[in-house]
Amino acid sequence: MRIARTRLNRSLGGDLTLFLFLLAVACFMSLPLVYTISNAFKPLNELFLFPPRFLVRNPTLDNFRDLFIMLRSSWVPFTRYVYNSLVIALLGTGGHVLFASMAAYALSQFRFPGSRQFFNIVVFSLMFAPQVTTIPNYLIMARLKWVDSYLALIVPAWGMSLGLYLMKQFMDQIPKALLESARIDGASEWRIFWQIVMPTVRPAWLTLIILSFQQLWGQTGGRFLFSERLKPIPYALQQISSGGIARAGVAAAVGLIMMLVPVTVFLINQSNVVETMSTSGIRE
């Protein structure tokens, strides 16, 4: 922020050096973005060029045209895959942010029997390798008769440990006095949660939305979804890629389309993470 720049201990030279350093690292880090974008516009002969070339030389929209031709003939419309992914990502993220924030509020602002233990279990659960829980998970879904429905992907997302841990860490920083004064004024816990706590930890849930959306958007649903009309877009991408050489161009185009959605979510949320003057006054 501009205000930060005018502080005493900043020099123009130092700022410039650091910025150039950042820019250099940023170029190195952005390779995959550049590669995905450039691939989507490569004609087939460049996609299979040997030795491979990083950047596109004769950009073309052929891949997108092929994609639309293929879409017209596909069994399930392509938009259906997009819709499925959106349903899973939106409902999953919405519920996750809501329930995790509520639980984080309880654990952060109250000491009650079991609170400390529950929080420890949540943190520990982040460290268990998910590869071995697939079978018990499947059995639970089968028992609930949720196999082959969105529920199998959406509902577990509501109880992911990451969101609770993230929200709790941010809520721990809210000064207790702020909430106490609201309680004295007779505000209900529900109102305190919505009108004081959530606006204060806005950077936290904006970040959580990015993380959760991105994770759910990438779900292939392989273990739980079997009907073609329920499958999400990463699954469609896998299918197209397995079409081999004939489908490589289309796969590159889908890869770009698939990446654009989380990138959009990212940019919208990330530019809002910055605390505005109106909300910063809430802090101690």
Binding site: F99, A100, M102, A103, Y105, A106, L107, F118, I121, V122, S125, T133, P136, N137, I140, V155, P156, W158, G159, M160, S161, L164, E189, F193
Partner: peptide, 15 residues
């Protein structure tokens, strides 16, 4: 406040 998360978390992670 804790209940909705706790129920889902226990069913799909702890178990």
């Amino acid at each position: 406040f804790l209940a909705p998360f706790a129920i889902i978390f226990i069913a799909f992670t702890v178990l």
